[in-house]
Design a protein around this nucleic acid. Structure first.
Length: 795
DNA sequence: GTAAGAAAAATTTTT
DNA sequence: TTTTTCTTAC
């Protein structure tokens, strides 16, 4: 214990030593948060707590694994394995598999990833014969996700009149039905999506108090990392589990809450004290990562946010150089200036390439930097794109695993029924789906007994189906006896996956084959380490459980390569680099144009920018361009408000052409002479317009085709009135109709490319305004305000 | 059932 | 601009 404490500062020590009740550790950027968490757990273990009675929740497997290593270093090898330590999803899934039958599931339930969820939603929308433009899988899933994260079940949603009215207003009146159907279909497939894992844990603890009591008693101490990123569902479980022992310690930084779009609720950390009134608050304010100059800039920025916990982050390092702002003519120039600077840093001999990171708001910004780096032959690595386990060829193999382990898994079924191609195409799949829907059974049940369910297929197709059935059946006979590696080899060969990939001699095909071998390797490794650990064979079920909840950040990265890192600011969270270049710091890009609608949106973007700045240890460079090529067009841009309004000017090393903010910010525009349409577009869009309400058409009660109705699998009790909880979860209503520049139905407008036309209809779709315009030359077109820069010519 | 060609869309993404 | 999705023709 002494040894542990000697490595901590006073405030860290206080946080580590307080174990008598609830505590909130507000950990400023770079303040040694992980250190506190690991030492606290190590301390608990040393003072006699059973590892099996400590629950420690993180957001990534990587974070959990790193802490386990550090804990083992302190208290002895292997101890961390006995902790209940892992991501919310993996720990909750573990509990759910154990208690599955209580909530009507089987413990072998599949986990649908986002792609599976979207595919299912797409099918449901099709089956209901709804407008697929209006009900896009992405939008529907994000809404369902929001609802689940706020613990609103389909029944509760259906019976909530206000929400129904909002959906009708937003022209998505059938959302509630889609949600119910999606929920029922997941249940029928014995599958849970990521959000279900949190939702069902809540249902379990709500409906089975004796189960809750058992876990409440088991977990004598609960620790949660990154609390600012928890959603309501996660928060409520933590609250409930801590209700008996009251030994809960949550760690986080409200200033780094950047995942609200995924359901994270910053209020969970801001109002933690209201939930646990006897909670002690510890603040870690000393930043060990960055120079005072960087910390001051970050502080000066974040001070502009209203919603935050008071704290004073400081650094005791040498002052360091000022945060530098560079301005470029265009995005291309920006890339070459930044890369030139990188080159200079490295040529000075003081830094290596791996000390450099280029951080941007959107992935699409990476391209120009890649090109600029390549031009100078500077090695770089890009973080982004999809993870190994999301690749098609890998997902296909995993889908076989899933189907064998859980034949009711409809998304797995869809994926493998005709892969590799075996002549069972869309037509047959459509028939199977129709029969399954009508009989209320799974696809697998349909093809298990096609005669009984009158599947209308010819003899040839029936034979193909029988072959497929035999294949899956054969695999299911060996799935429990074979170890994961042997089983995978059989799947790959028997299903003809290897043969299929080998037949493709293109570069793409070869890389797929390589990936397949890579998968086999990783399964082999998985088996080896299991054998080392417990002297037992690893099953494919265990492997699948692990990878279903794994993301790309969890994959090993060869950190030793001397390469410049390119990544989004989001993925940089938690990392640090000696030199950081934050690029594209322009209005409508950073802050993102999608965030400008609300103050909360801007505050989150500001936190995101805060995260970006605080990644830097020694040098932080902020860059903007005056012209940016985006979505096929070049636009003139303004430097971000974060530079021009938020950060104290005195703290920055500003570029020569920078107009002081005491003069008009319009001076930033290149186009002030009015010769260009850009400046009129900008001033036009910001102009005050007439009230929008008059131009909205009444929601038309257009008769919809009848949908197939589903019977909910089980009558789940509605959750208690959500508002009765301490925090009302924020289920946001659809955005009000935004500013239309006074454009009303009947107005004449002018479009840059399409010319003049009259407005026939104005709709609100997902926060954007969609105009239906009858153009003089081109006829009727639908146009989003976000992209079309319409000029109002009046009635 | 595939392949080519047209059309439409276009944040961030810890599980 | 690129990327994904939808249509159409073989």
């Amino acid at each position: 214990m002494e040894e542990i404490l000697s490595q901590l500062n006073d405030s860290q020590k206080d946080a580590v030593l307080y174990n008598d009740g609830p505590s909130l550790v507000v950990a400023g950027a770079g303040s040694g948060k992980t250190r506190v968490l690991t030492y606290k757990i190590a301390g608990l273990l040393q003072s006699g707590y059973e590892p099996g009675r400590i629950l420690a929740l993180t957001f990534t497997n990587k974070a959990a694994d790193e802490m386990k290593v550090r804990i083992d270093d302190i208290v002895g090898a292997g101890v961390s394995r006995r902790l209940w330590m892992g991501t919310f999803h993996s720990i909750f899934a573990r509990i759910l598999r154990h208690e599955a039958e209580k909530i009507g599931y089987k413990s072998n339930f599949s986990i649908y990833d986002t792609a599976d969820s979207k595919s299912l939603i797409k099918n449901i929308v099709k089956e209901m014969a709804l407008d697929e433009k209006k009900y896009t899988p992405k939008a529907v899933l994000s809404r369902i996700s929001q609802l689940k994260n706020s613990l609103v079940t389909p029944d509760v949603y259906r019976n909530h009149t206000d929400w129904q009215k909002n959906d009708a207003y937003a022209k998505i009146p059938r959302l509630s039905e889609i949600y119910s159907t999606y929920f029922a279909r997941c249940y029928k497939a014995c599958a849970m999506d990521f959000d279900d894992i949190l939702l069902y844990t809540n249902i379990l603890f709500r409906d089975f108090p004796e189960v809750l009591a058992q876990y409440q008693d088991l977990f004598q101490f609960i620790l949660v990392d990154e609390y600012q990123d928890t959603n309501f569902a996660q928060h409520l479980v933590v609250k409930k589990l801590a209700a008996i022992h009251h030994h809960v310690c949550v760690v986080g930084d409200d200033a780094q809450s950047i995942y609200s779009f995924r359901g994270a609720n910053i209020d969970n950390i801001l109002k933690f004290r209201e939930v646990f009134p006897d909670c002690r608050v510890f603040k870690l304010e000393r930043n060990y990562r960055s120079t005072p100059n960087i910390v001051k800039v970050a502080n000066s920025l974040i001070a502009k946010n209203k919603k935050q916990l008071p704290k004073n982050v400081y650094s005791e390092q040498k002052e360091g150089s000022k945060v530098k702002v560079i301005s470029s003519y265009s995005d291309l120039d920006e890339a070459s200036s930044v890369v030139a600077q990188i080159d200079r840093f490295v040529s000075s001999g003081k830094y290596k390439y791996k000390d450099m990171a280029v951080l941007y708001r959107t992935n699409s910004q990476s391209r120009v930097f890649e090109e600029a780096l390549r031009k100078r032959s500077i090695p770089y690595k890009i973080h982004g794109g999809h993870s190994f386990y999301q690749r098609k060829e890998i997902k296909d193999v995993l889908a076989y695993f899933r189907l064998v382990l859980n034949p009711d898994d409809e998304e797995a079924f869809r994926r493998v029924i005709n892969y590799p191609a075996r002549g069972i195409g869309n037509t047959t799949m459509g028939k199977i789906s129709e029969v399954a829907l009508r009989a209320g059974i799974s696809y697998w049940e349909v093809i298990s007994d096609p005669l009984r369910y009158n599947l209308p297929v010819n003899a040839g197709t029936a034979a193909k189906l029988a072959n497929f059935r035999a294949l899956i059946h054969g695999l299911s006979e060996i799935v429990d006896s074979d170890n994961a590696y042997d089983f995978t080899k059989k799947v790959v060969d028997c299903a003809g996956i290897r043969a299929d990939l080998e037949s493709d001699q293109s570069a793409e095909g070869l890389s797929k084959l390589e990936n397949l071998d890579e998968l086999l390797n990783s399964i082999h490794e998985f088996c080896e380490s299991k054998r080392e650990e417990s002297d037992e064979e690893a099953t494919i079920s265990e492997f699948l459980q692990k990878v279903s909840l794994m993301s790309d950040v969890d994959e090993d990265t060869e950190d030793n390569d001397d390469k410049v890192t390119l990544m989004t600011v989001h993925s940089a969270k938690g990392l640090e680099f000696k030199n950081v270049f934050i690029v594209g710091v322009e209005e409508e890009l950073f802050p993102s144009d999608m965030s400008l609608k609300s103050e909360d949106g801007i505050e989150e973007e500001r936190r995101l920018f805060y995260v970006a700045i605080t990644r830097a240890e020694e040098n932080c460079v902020i860059s903007y361009a005056k012209l940016r090529f985006r979505n096929g067009v070049t636009n003139s841009t303004l430097p971000s408000r974060f530079i021009t309004k938020d950060i104290d000017e005195k703290l920055l090393d500003l570029p020569e052409d920078y107009m002081s903010r005491s003069t008009s910010s319009r001076n930033f525009s290149l186009w002030d002479d009015g010769e260009s349409s850009y400046s009129s577009y900008r001033s036009g869009r910001n102009a005050v317009s007439k009230p929008w309400s008059r131009s909205i058409r009444e929601a038309d009660p257009e008769p919809m085709p009848r949908s197939t109705t589903y019977v909910a699998p089980r009558n789940l009790k509605p959750l208690p009135k959500v508002s009765a909880e301490v925090f009302a979860p924020s289920v946001s209503v659809p955005e009000p109709m935004p500013n239309t520049d006074g454009i009303e139905v009947g107005c004449w407008v002018e479009h840059e490319r399409f010319g003049r036309g009259t407005v026939l209809e104005i709709e609100n779709v997902g926060g954007d305004v969609k105009f239906t315009i009858n153009f003089q030359n081109l006829g009727e077109k639908k146009i989003l305000q976000k992209y079309a820069h319409l000029k109002n010519l009046g009635k």
